[in-house]
Nucleic acid binder design. Structure first.
Lengths: 222, 222, 222, 222
DNA sequence: TATGAATGAGGATTCATTCAT
DNA sequence: GATGAATGAATCCTCATTCAT
């Protein structure tokens, strides 16, 4: 990755672990940290990691360029912290949804509603997009996401689906074997509207309702 | 205005897609062009557009750095040509599949099989990934993809699905309203295996079969 | 369009003279700007625009390569600012000389003296040489010079010469019609000594005195 | 000078002297050589040495790029040969003019007429401009010009002027001491029209007549 | 803490020159 | 001789990172 001096110096400096300690700040400083993160999300979402200039992040955050380095080790650390920070609160929410004792269809609806409200309707949609776009180049981040988000939600969901199959709530085990199928359209919606929204916007709510219809309503084919 | 490097660099933006065909090359040179494209796909897929060094592309292609510029105006043009070149042959194939006179379920299976064989099983999977990753930053490319690929396949598919609904082949019109639902899992599979494949590989064939089951088999829920 | 280096390099041409004043610098930074300009003059004068390396300018100025870009948009802008900066203070001086109420011959002598002291005896001689050498390739610069220097001095001078003709101070109107004739030898001196000075230096003072003799003394021929 | 590989390899290869022998060609090849020189003059005059691309010269000459190297060692050699070739025939002409037995004023007029017809009215004007623009960077060329052109004409002219002074043909010796004064306006005319011609063209004929008036007519001042 | 001027490594691009055909 | 595809050195410019204030 052509990340300039940073990239080269990063490996040697790796073990320093200094930035974790940088985190705990008095309230007003936490604000500054937050405004940097907000600005960073705007810029990263608009241009991707490589094409984002810290200069622009600083300007948008209303701080000097050097200030960013008081809160984050380097550009990459800023990016990763951004993703982690934005995703963490989500985890609890989804997890909570998944474990609620609900009929399986109601659970699916809840998950989808939660997705639409908590991700699609917020800046987190951009975070997801960033993970998809940049994940290949940030294996640590993909791993984090896999471990912290997917790894927590998917097993619970899969388990609930399996039980549903056993209980006869679900006519087949396809969804239990591939719970990803539940959210694939949601993912597609994020990507579609990011890429083609200006040509043909996709109504996510309607899309997801149609999806639920196919999954749960009476029958797929005559 | 001088014509020194600085000055020259100011104009070359103009005609973006003009250079194809500008140089008709003998056959063996087409090979060289192809080996550059192949190398470029490797590098772009591994690092993304911004982080790919033309130096590396050249080395991988076994040519000198300057040679790339005999075949492509600049890095961006190389990238776009790569995507277009790789996608174009696909269009016919998918279009052909879509118009075949088949029962709707067979058609869906054909489309999915085609996808698995022609995209997922080939380097084109990387091209799709590149469009997803870089599409935001290359609006022209997103537009090209929308116009040339999606715009040709989706309407045909939607039409076939509508007819199927009218004929009672499909029990509901959800899929006809959102044909994207048919391929959403395929897309997810590409992304999943790119990001999380090393932790938990996703069996695309099985995934898509499960998907078809849900869409077409007897019933989704009891 | 990505914002990678390639893409970014396409636009920066726009506002050519916009950046002066865009960054107000403290006094000591003006010094740095000045030292870059000084170094640039040395290098441009020695090698011409195209063959000057900003690396060399930086080294000579005692700054890093990137520092130049804090003060000037690009190489071309540095060149043009150099010329403008060096020439501007001259304008007032020459203009002032031209409007003084003096007998015409005294005025001619004043102009020539001013030229020798303010141009020939200074680095401005190199600026003039640069305009001559590079003017064809920098039409804006030629225009600037025509408008700001020539356009201000020539009309005033021509007017004074016309009045002198009317008053009988001058025996013929040749000089009034072509005031350029007054300074042509000065120009030649600059070029001569630049090109042939090492073979046969030209004594500018003597040359210009001889010139004045021919223009103003009793008669040219018997 | 940033001349690419050529410049570096030039010094070691210096002693080869191979290109002098390349010159004598059968007639049709001399044509090719000539067409390259013609094209080179066009390009060098329009862009200067550094900004001229041999690609463009070749295209304009209707030959392949490599062909240039059959007739000229390198770009610099092409440039120098161009100047020498174009200037040589001039030398005889001016020399001839200078030695004619004529009254001094008639001689001056002849020289000026010759200049206007043989230089100003021809492509040689561009050669002169090139010497002025690039001379600093091609000391050999300046030397060639000084030796072959100036060195042949100036002494003869100076001698004739001295005799004229002695004979009382000239009222003062200013011109004899600085014969350059005779042609300074001619030089200025070339430069002026190259730089400012589009704003305010200078009528060279009228300029030179005015110049002669000042030099030779009755008196300069009352 | 905060700043932002300064740094300089990195990479895209150009083009003189070579050489296999 | 003639060609023009290939080469790769050279240089502009960017921007992450540092550090004196």
């Amino acid at each position: 990755m052509a990340r300039g001096p940073a990239a080269r110096r990063k490996s040697p400096a790796q073990g320093s672990g200094r930035d974790r300690g940088a985190r705990r700040k008095p309230a007003h400083e936490a604000d500054k940290r937050q405004s940097i993160l907000d600005a960073a999300l705007d810029e990263f979402a608009a241009r991707g990691f490589a094409d984002t200039r810290l200069d622009d992040v600083a300007r948008r955050a209303g701080v000097a360029k050097g200030t960013i380095y008081l809160y984050f080790r380097d550009k990459e650390n800023l990016f990763q912290d951004l993703v982690r920070t934005r995703l963490s609160p989500l985890i609890g929410t989804i997890e909570a949804a998944a474990v609620r004792e609900l009929p399986i269809r109601a659970l699916a609806e809840l998950i989808i509603t939660t997705f639409i409200e908590e991700i699609y309707g917020t800046r987190r949609k951009d975070v997801i997009r960033l993970i998809i776009s940049e994940g290949t180049r940030f294996p640590e981040l993909a791993q984090f996401y896999y471990r912290e988000v997917i790894g927590r939600v998917l097993p619970v969901l899969r388990q609930r689906l399996r039980v549903a199959v056993e209980r006869g709530e679900l006519g087949k085990d396809a969804l239990a074997r591939f719970p990803q199928l539940l959210v694939a359209p949601a993912l597609m919606a994020i990507l579609w509207n990011g890429l083609f929204g200006r040509f043909e916007p996709l109504d996510v709510g309607a899309l997801m309702r149609a999806h639920l219809e196919l999954l749960f309503d009476d029958r797929g084919t005559s």
